[in-house]
Design a protein around this nucleic acid. Sequence first.
DNA 1: TCTGGGGTCCTAGGACCC
DNA 2: TCTGGGGTCCTAGGACCC
Length: 415
Amino acid sequence: MGDKIIFHLDMDQFFAAVEIQCQPHLRGKPVIVGGSPSGRGIVTTASYEARRFGVRSGMPAIEAARLCPQAVFVRCDHGKYMDVSRRVFSLLHAFTDRVQQTSVDEAYMDVTHVAWQSGGVDSLAYAIKHRVRTVEGLTCTIGGGPNRLVAKVASGMKKPDGYTYIPRERIAEVFCDMPVGDLYGVGKATQRILEGFGIRTAGQLAEFPEDILRRRFGKFGNDLSRIARGEGADDVLVEEERPLEKSMGHEQTFQNVHDTTLLLGRLHLLCERVARRLRAGDMAGRVVTVKIRYKGFETVIHGRKIKTHVQHEMFIYPVAEQLFHEAYRKGEDVRLVGVHVSDLLPVEDILQQELFVQKRETSQLMETCDGIKERYGEASIGFASGYLVTRRRRAGGAEWFNPFHADLMRRKVQM
DNA sequence: TCTGGGGTCCTAGGACCC
DNA sequence: TCTGGGGTCCTAGGACCC
């Protein structure tokens, strides 16, 4: 059987592109989505104009502002990006039903059996790009190859608005001088170790004795050799074939806080959000993990496997609270708390008696709360402890504040 | 430069059981 | 009282991706 033809489609500067489309006066300017020029946060996406100044995603906003003082900072609006993302990816389904979305702005497509209808692989790629541009006004980059790994590398070669196809016979030639850090799965830490072996390019990595890599990296050592040779899986999984989610979590960063009541309040709110998502997805989890990041970025996680699968904050929060007390070094400044629930199962697969007690105790209250949130938004109802503001007023006790929907709360106060 | 928030996968050590 | 060794589970932490 011959090679498959896999496309990797990557939206160009996606969040920035969406913002520019909504605010046309931003076109041509260095736009930075995420973070604020003065203070904290990181760059989520930088427009290509901003990238010319060295601004990159993941970079602290304050450094981005230093590199590019004239940059326009725009707040991240995930809801908006999700909407556009949904529309873009629905366009792809007109070309093939084998579409696997891997993030809000990336997807793999198996076009093996449809390329010929469009007059060949290249024509198909240009047809897809054309469609995305004319319908949504956005550009994307497409990479193609015999498997996902090569397609992904190909899409990274000519950005933005590019197209590159790497047939099997050209893989070795293309990979030969490519920096190892450009390979999918090779991050900074791995790159450093490889450089210690004198390996700088994918070509050198492919030639390197596999047993040495295996000894140094374990199972990942074999993966590295494969990756360097451009070998990888060529399956593209559609929605129904994808594995179920394995964990769900929420975390929140704030100014340094050491007030236990406030921290637990936030933790409670995060538990609520996780629990609501579990219920919405008809899932329940059995491992609760709490994450605490201190002022100096030291991060500790404490987790516990509990007796039964749960999907209500009424059961998640007490575990989280206990874990928090075990992990937290009292008095120290905290910059982030998070809650994750893992070891997930669909509710239908869980023994009936396990859920029965929980359901009897919680269903009405929680279902009512979920209904209210569904209709009036996340800010509409919740446990009071989650709404304590970070800083207390000097006189008059605590200030009440909803960290997720400040605008809504402000409106309510004005009314 | 000083680091968001959502995930996945892997490893290593200790507990525990047979 | 001291003692093997294998398998599995649990927990903490790290690397990586977008």
